[in-house]
């Protein structure tokens, strides 16, 4: 059996805001179909790292490859076309959903497909309905986002990100703004995606979800990966005192 192909290759990603060095050279290879859980204390740089992977934040060092090909000729000076291409291939789900409030749920999911020339109007709508069905919200197609609960909005945001058929999905604390019961609906959708073989990187404090769904857990601390391994190992047999302290603190909440 051959090794599964490397989908994302992030090489020594660095990010500084002025003289605040937030990411100190993070290297991560993600295989196709793999689910990575990214955990760590607040301020560790988890969001910043995720945002560097689709260049919402421009790294100050390092390089990205997607499916074996460098995403940028010059990682420090990306061209507009390269940026758009990367973002079309990498979907992102935000903690605060960020649905477009002036558009119907359906249009939220249709818009980027059309503007990216991926599908025509009818096809895009058809696909949007299919995705809404997949996240269990067919009946919300014509609602405005404000008429949906937080959990529903986040599931719509997932459908919206999926509408571009991304090769990699990034989730930044997708349930942190939600009540636990509602959060479970979102986690179920994500687990479903994982079961379908979607490659995902998930920043989360939901340790049970991470333990059950992730293939690999990374513990990010002060801008670097302090520990990584299978969920059993990181959660039940961490090799660093910092990891132990963090897990204890999360359990105590």
């Amino acid at each position: 059996m051959s090794e599964p192909r490397v989908l994302l290759d992030a090489e020594s990603i660095e990010k500084s805001f002025k003289d605040n060095e937030v990411l100190k050279g993070i290297t991560l290879k993600v295989h196709a179909g793999e689910v990575i859980a990214l955990i760590g204390p607040s301020g560790a740089g988890k969001s910043t790292f995720l945002r560097c992977l689709n260049y919402l934040e421009r790294p100050t060092g390092g390089s990205l490859s997607l499916d074996g090909a460098p995403a940028f000729t010059d990682p420090l000076g990306p061209t507009k076309a390269e940026l758009l291409r990367l973002r079309r291939r990498v979907g992102m789900v935000f903690q605060s959903f960020n649905l477009f409030p002036h558009l119907s749920v359906l249009k939220n999911i249709v818009l980027a497909q059309k503007l990216n020339g991926l599908r025509g109007n009818l096809e895009a709508e058809e696909y949007a309905r299919e995705l809404l069905g997949q996240v269990g919200l067919d009946e919300k197609a014509h609602a405005k986002p404000a008429e949906c609960s937080g959990g529903q909005q986040q599931r719509i945001a997932i459908a919206r990100a999926l509408s571009l058929d991304p090769e990699l999905m990034l989730f930044d604390e997708p349930t942190s703004a939600l009540d636990p019961e509602v959060g479970n609906d979102v986690l179920n959708v994500m687990r479903d995606l994982a079961d379908r073989g979607t490659t995902m990187i998930v920043v989360t404090h939901e340790m049970r979800f991470a333990e059950r769904v992730a293939d690999r857990v990374l513990f990010l601390d002060r801008g670097g990966i302090l520990e990584e391994g299978a969920p059993e190992q990181v959660f039940h047999n961490p090799s660093h005192e910092r990891t132990r302290e963090f897990l204890q603190a999360v359990l105590d909440r």
């Binding site: 919402l56 079309r88 935000f94 960020n98 649905l99 980027a112 990216n116 945001a157 990100a161």
Partner: peptide, 11 residues
């Protein structure tokens, strides 16, 4: 977040 979500969708 609105602009970021739009950017993340390749707009």
């Amino acid at each position: 977040g609105q602009k970021e979500a739009a950017a993340a969708l390749g707009l």
